[in-house]
């Protein structure tokens, strides 16, 4: 579904990603793990078209998308829940969620999806007319996931859903993500909580200072002594 080949990304003179190769198959859940500053979010932003790569290729269902504008990439079916939520703070919860469906014309399906995300996060239903900026951190994260789902993407990129949230809230949100996965959505999970990520994923890639240093089935990586030592703290 997604095939990244020899991707190099730089912010001006500073190169952040080096020769990244990665593949995601249909209906697969893939985790991308690595320390802070490894380049995980940079990779997601590049896939989504917010950053243009220096070189390399990103193919999505056979179409070359590296360097395409963000709206075209979303139209092809790649959606993102960005790190730090990035909600529209002055807009209501409902307006935020509906912004996710900005490009969609299929009104009936949009309504169904809206009901689906409210079902997923009943708390959002109670807060529909509240400004998103007034929500608690966990609610904001739910709102961001709901908005991301409203685009009905074929591939959903989720970035650091657990950051700064209480364990119970994180569990709540990942339960919702699991339901989405069960419906057959392909998901790329970026997560600083490596255990959480590996638990969700079929396969995982490890990014270290801009390079993929390891990859494989999630359960194997969970048992890998280097992963255990470096990321799981066991």
């Amino acid at each position: 579904m997604l095939k990244i080949t020899d991707l190099n990304v730089a912010y001006g003179e500073v190169q952040v990603l080096w020769d990244v190769n990665m593949e995601i198959h249909e209906s697969e859940v893939v985790a991308l793990i690595g320390a802070n500053g490894a380049g995980k979010s940079t990779l997601l932003y590049t896939i989504s078209g917010l950053l243009k790569p220096k070189s390399g290729s990103i193919q999505f269902n056979g179409t070359e998308i590296a360097g395409l504008p963000a709206d075209e990439i979303l139209r092809l079916g790649i959606g993102q829940v960005p790190q730090g939520r990035h909600l529209f703070a002055g807009m209501t919860v409902k307006e935020n969620i509906m912004m996710g469906a900005y490009l969609r014309k299929d009104k009936q399906k949009v309504k169904e999806d809206f009901d689906f995300v409210l079902d997923l996060f009943p708390r959002m239903g109670e807060r529909l007319n509240q400004p998103a900026g007034s929500l608690s951190g966990g609610e904001q994260q739910m709102c961001a996931v709901a908005r991301g789902l409203m685009a009905a993407p074929k591939l959903l990129l989720v970035d650091e859903l657990s950051l700064g949230l209480a364990p119970l809230v994180v569990e709540n949100i990942y339960n919702a993500v699991e339901k989405v996965i069960q419906r057959g959505m392909t998901v790329l999970i970026v997560e600083q909580d490596v255990f959480l990520a590996l638990e969700q994923a079929d396969r995982a890639y490890v990014l270290d200072v801009g390079r993929i240093v390891m990859s494989g089935p999630a359960d194997e990586l969970m048992e890998n002594p280097r992963i255990k030592e470096a990321y799981l703290g066991i």
């Binding site: 078209g49 917010l50 709206d71 979303l74 993102q80 960005p82 529209f88 900005y102």
Partner: peptide, 8 residues
């Protein structure tokens, strides 16, 4: 950036 991610 969030607006761009929604396709604006």
């Amino acid at each position: 950036d969030a607006a761009r991610l929604q396709g604006v």
